[in-house]
Structures are given as C-alpha cells and as structure tokens.
C-alpha cells in the first residue's frame, strides 16, 4: 500500500515513516507542508495521504484545507488527518467532502496503540472511515439523557460509539470481545430505537449515525 506523509515536525515524520514501513506500508514521499503534499499526491497517486492539521506557513488549519483540495483533485486517494487536538467542526467538513468514504481523522495519541492505528490506516485506505473516539465522545455527550437516546443500554452506547468511529461489525466484535452475531443484534436494536433507516455498507452507516448525533438536541 503506497502512502504519502505530510508532517512538519521531523521527529514525528521520521517516527511515523518508520512505523508504517515496519508494518509493511510503502512510504513513497514525506513532505513538510500542504503545497508539497498536494504536489506529491498529484504526481505519485498514492493509496493514502496522512496529513497533519497544523502545517507551515500559517500553522493553522492548512492540513484540513490541503485535504479538501486533494479530495477535489485526486478523489481516489484516501486521506487520514492526524492532529494534536480534535475539533468536530473539522470532522464534519472532512466527512462532508468524502461522500464515498476513505477518510479518517485521528488524534496523534492513537498512533501509540500501533495495532489499532495500523488497522485504522488500512481501513481508511480501503475506503472505510476512522473517526477519533474523542470526536465521537464530544458528539455523544450532548445527547446523553435526551430523547430516544436515554433508552440505549450502556452496551448499546458502546456499540454506537464504535460504529461512529467507523469500525465494521467484525471490528466492534473484536474490540468488545463478543461475537459478530451479538454485534449485529445490538446494531439492529440501536437503529430501531433511534428510528434510523438501515444503511448499506460501513461508511454509509457512519454517515447515518453521525447525522443523527449532529442534530441539535431538543431542550428537555
């Protein structure tokens, strides 16, 4: 799998490159700013671009802007945005631009859990979704105890969170150490309780769940 990395801190760039090579990825280019990223991605056509949000020259949200531009110019390259902080505003923008999947947004902290991180990278590169648990938690906090949400059991809430992160049923089963059949039952019950239409495919499912979570909760 061919990967391009855009990260301005050399320490992190080299670390990430080594980690990906160790896990069998082919890092075709490592760059330090958004313009170089767009340039390299357009010329190399990798399967995946890993992009830091804060990049020179302004150190603001260049990474998000570069990612959105890549989406427009090279839609077949999947994009994984990594950052020291997460804002659900950026998550919303990235997902809105990626109707067809192949998008991820993770805290850099997640890289420490190498197994999980590599799994997320593969998932995004093959058209799936990876949304940081903290973004999902931000979205879930504000709906807690409101509307049909308070009828979800704690286990169902966990499954909902993992669905929103973009995991497949098999991934959820592995994370919660339960059978795939049990996950399917939970998912069906969650969709019933929240009155969501059934969604085909993991990415569609993420979009449906996030659309539900992003509605402004009704006052009590």
């Amino acid at each position: 799998m061919r990967v391009v990395i855009a990260e301005d801190l050399a320490l992190l760039r080299d670390g990430l490159e080594r980690l990906l090579r160790d896990n069998g990825f082919d890092v075709v280019a490592s760059v330090a700013d958004g313009d170089a990223l767009v340039h390299k991605t357009v010329s190399e056509r990798p399967d995946l671009a890993i992009v830091d949000i804060r990049l020179p020259p302004t150190f603001r949200d260049e990474g998000v802007r570069a990612a959105l531009e890549l989406r427009r110019r090279v839609p077949e390259t999947a994009i994984l945005v990594v950052s020291q902080y997460v804002e659900h505003t950026y998550a919303t923008e990235l997902l809105a631009a990626a109707d067809s999947g192949g998008v991820g947004y993770l805290l850099k902290d997640r890289i420490m859990d190498v197994g999980d991180f590599v799994e997320a990278v593969r998932r995004v590169a093959s058209g799936g979704t990876a949304l940081d648990p903290e973004v999902v938690a931000q979205l879930i906090t504000r709906r807690r105890n409101r509307g049909p949400f308070d009828r979800l059991t704690p286990r169902e809430l966990e499954v909902l969170g993992l669905m929103a992160e973009g995991r497949s049923n098999a991934g959820i089963a592995a994370a919660l150490v339960i059978s795939i059949g049990a996950v399917e039952k939970h998912v069906a019950r969650i969709f019933g309780k929240l009155r969501l239409p059934p969604a085909e495919g993991d990415h569609r499912r993420v979009l449906a769940v996030l659309a539900y979570l992003q509605q402004q909760p009704a006052p009590l």
Binding site: E87, H88, T89, Q138, L139, T141, R142, R144, Q216, P217, A218, P219
Partner: peptide, 11 residues
C-alpha cells in the same frame, strides 16, 4: 464559539 456550543451538554 460554534465548537464550544457543540461540546456543551446543553443545546
């Protein structure tokens, strides 16, 4: 402030 609002437990 929009992001603050989104993170708040209140609407």
């Amino acid at each position: 402030i929009g992001a603050l609002g989104a993170r708040s437990p209140l609407p």
